[in-house]
Amino acid sequence: MLTIKNLHVSIEDKQILKGINLEVQKGEIHAIMGPNGSGKSTLASVLAGRNLFNITEGEIIYEGKNLLEMAPEERAREGIFLGFQYPVEIPGVSMMNFLKTAVNEQRKHRGLEPMKSSDFLKMMREKKDLVEIDSNLTNRSVNEGFSGGEKKRNEIFQMAMLDPRLSILDETDSGLDIDALKIVAHGVNKLKSSENATIVITHYQRLLNYIIPDRVHVLYDGQIVKSGNKDLAIELEDKGYDWLRKETQAG
């Protein structure tokens, strides 16, 4: 589904990603872990199409297409979803209008008619139940005045509405208490299918108690220095990133 080959990314002459290689198949959950500043969020942003970065080398192939040539909205319509680490507040744009526009753009892309209002409301109700989001959030402006937890849950709700093929969740667990964390993880697990894939980016192992990854990768100084199964996350939690630092330097 997704192949990242030798990806080099810089911002203002500072090299951030220094040769990432990653292969994600459908039906899989991948976790990317790593200390602050290792390039995790940059990777997520580059996948979603943020144009703040220079791609100096490498390629990303998604469903056989060159992802780097696609605008962010095209990527979204092709099934890529980024759960933001810091969801943006957009006063004056109602959640309803925002979601309706997004869903209908996606439908247009698939050659479908815009959704009828009644069907749309029904779908919203179902998805709200699925991810256990507070129902009055959708009556407000996008993320405006939402608490940290509400913002993250809102990301998962949007993910449910858009039904993506590849979700990238950027530190969705940061700033969440354990109850909110469970709700978010629960949502992700419910949305998982054999047809889609998820990349979970996290600093801590605790989210992985609730979302069981098929593969765990450790990103360190712009490179994936270690990959393994879910046990790698536990090992990391025990030994800390210092362990890897030493191992990498020794290597």
Binding site: E73, A76, R77, L82, V93, F98, T101, A102, S141
Partner: peptide
């Protein structure tokens, strides 16, 4: 970028923001 990342085209996203403004 947030709006575009949900599949809303650039022009439409600009409009939504101006309209909100």
């Amino acid at each position: 970028f947030y709006l575009r990342s949900r599949g809303i085209p650039l022009k439409e996203a600009q409009l939504l923001l101006m309209y909100a403004f």
